[in-house]
Write a protein that binds this DNA or RNA. Structure first.
Length: 314
DNA sequence: GATCCGTGGGG
DNA sequence: TCCCCAAGGAT
């Protein structure tokens, strides 16, 4: 959960997750659908799919591997997580390299090569950080101390070098360039995409929902039926030709959602099916289900939040 | 190596 | 409002 996600955002999800799945066997035995439901809103949903697959592997092999090499073979576990588990759970003297450790390392060594090209070099330099026997004897404490140093002192902006225990050995600080490191490659502009989605209620308080393909963007998550997300905006007439059925659609509003690599604007139409008409909708648009039981990503929760809202509350 | 993959908070 | 960044991994 902590991959690319802040502790604050994770905590409530983590606690709820462990309540449902106290052991790795519990997680391995759970349907992926339930796992995605518990993950909904946290983002990077491949992590949930990988964690579930990982639990199955661990359960099948009768326990967790305790070496970096074996951990690396598990789904969702890469160079960072393998070392974090090895150090924190199994006391192996390795240094997990996350964003914090990359930043600390770049500053200690005044490494000016920009990310991401500098990553292999920073990994080699970071592996030497625990050369001190005291560090080697407490791999878990040392790893977490590095995370905390990066989170509280050696921060991305305005690092508080005055209180840093490593100030005297930091080359970047000596040169007065700590705050500028690590350098980063300029990023490309984020494109914009547009889509239309339809919120159709039946007479039982359920909504028309469909499940996205198992991999890729929002893989395995649920959504309101709608159009593709394309670079050109949709006209109202064109949009309505993609509706699940002919009925009295109300333009309910628009939402904006920023993904990692594009910004999305969605227009939402809403309608209520009369009691006698909740059949005859093509299955490609989904099925009528409870929205509270669905695995809805943040972008779809925004769409649902538009229902019956007045402009003043928006 | 470059891309793809969410969401929330801080400055 | 906008940009940055977060206990990264897979393809």
């Amino acid at each position: 959960m902590l991959q690319q996600t802040t502790v604050k955002a994770v905590i409530s999800y983590y606690e709820r997750f462990l309540t449902h799945y106290p052991t790795v066997q519990d997680l391995a035995a759970a349907p992926l659908e339930d796992v995605l439901h518990l993950w909904a809103g946290l983002g990077y949903y491949a992590r949930a799919r990988n964690l579930h697959a990982c639990a199955k592997r661990v359960s099948e092999r009768g326990g967790f591997p305790n070496t970096v090499e074996e951990l690396l073979t598990l789904p969702g576990i890469g160079a960072y997580t393998a070392r974090a588990i090895a150090a924190i759970a199994f006391g192996r003297p390795v240094v997990p390299v996350d964003g914090n450790v990359e930043r600390i390392t770049a500053r200690l060594n005044a490494t000016e090569e920009p990310l991401p090209a500098a990553r292999p070099l920073l990994a080699k330099q970071a592996a030497l950080l625990n050369a001190d026997p005291d560090a080697q004897s407490r791999p878990s404490d040392f790893a977490q101390a590095l995370f905390d140093l990066g989170a509280t002192i050696c921060t991305p902006r305005n690092p508080t070098c005055l209180t840093c225990p490593w100030q005297t050995s930091c080359i970047a600080h000596a040169r007065g360039i700590a705050a500028q490191l690590p350098a980063k490659q300029p990023k490309q502009t984020r494109p914009t995409r547009y889509g239309i989605h339809f919120l159709l209620h039946d007479s039982n308080g359920q909504a028309l929902l469909r499940t996205r393909p198992p991999t890729g963007l929002l893989g395995g998550m649920d959504e309101l039926p709608g159009t593709d997300w394309r670079s050109a905006p949709w006209s109202e007439d064109e949009a309505l030709t993609h509706a699940p059925c002919l009925t009295d659609w109300t333009h309910r509003g628009e939402i904006r959602h920023v993904f990692t690599h594009f910004t999305l604007y969605l227009t939402v139409y809403e309608a209520y099916l009369p009691q006698s008409h909740n059949a005859g909708i093509d299955s490609s648009f989904g099925t009528f289900r409870s929205t509270t039981r669905a695995a809805l990503p943040g972008v779809m929760k925004k769409c649902l939040a538009l229902t019956k809202q007045t402009p003043e509350t928006r």
